[in-house]
Amino acid sequence: MKTVLINCSPKKRFCASQYFLFLQKLFTGGKKVSEKLRNQADHARILDQLKDAQTVVFCLPLYVDGVPSHVLRFMEEMETFCRQNDIHLNVYCIANNGFIEGRQNEPLMQIIENFCSRAGLIWGGGVGIGGGVMLNVTRIVFEIQIGLLVLNTVLSVIQTGVLFPKDLWIDFGENALTLLFFNLGALFYFALMGAAIRKGSYLGKKYTRILIPSFIFILFADIFFIIISLFEGGIFRGWLAKKEPAN
């Protein structure tokens, strides 16, 4: 069984979709092919992969309550391709948005479902995730923690000769478990989607979010954008101003 997992984020790197597909692959059996859809140049290559596949998983960010425009262009081409080649894939979807509520992905899910009806494909359902950007940040934090653990372990060996300093590993374990907890909702539904892909069954539309209270999420989101805007300079260029068109 071949599953094509398509990362539909237009970003070159550090995108949440890449992280979610990495997790989804852990729960998906059979042959897995990862693809990246960023522009029209990717279309032919991805469509070629669909010829002998049984399942496709779209992983995409929510843009203005719907599917990003570059993905719509691919879907139009895929509809024609699947009809011409009598291809009837199972289609699943992982949608993520920057807001806290996973349910805000519902219009996107409906659009993918309607696409399946038009293209003669089998809609398998999907997972809609709120706080996708922040969940991706937990991945980055985890990677930094691993780096620090390795560094501190080396220093510990050099300074004291102890390979497993207890406090260091307990701290790492506590932090890792906290980050894991934030991701539990998404992980649970990725496991269900993996089972649905194996059976070729209907998952339904499942919505989840980063597992922290909304008011904390909003506070962190605002702080996140303040810091980024400070580094990128936007805060000094009329950050919240009602700017007029140049002409």
Binding site: S9, P10, K11, C15, N39, P61, Y63, P68, S69, H70, F225, I228, S229, E232, G233, G234, R237, G238, W239, L240, A241, K243
Partner: peptide
């Protein structure tokens, strides 16, 4: 061109 998802219109050059 399509949106590149960089958020620069929020964080780098606001409203542009």
């Amino acid at each position: 061109a399509h949106c590149q998802g960089c958020f620069g219109c929020w964080t780098k050059h606001p409203a542009e």
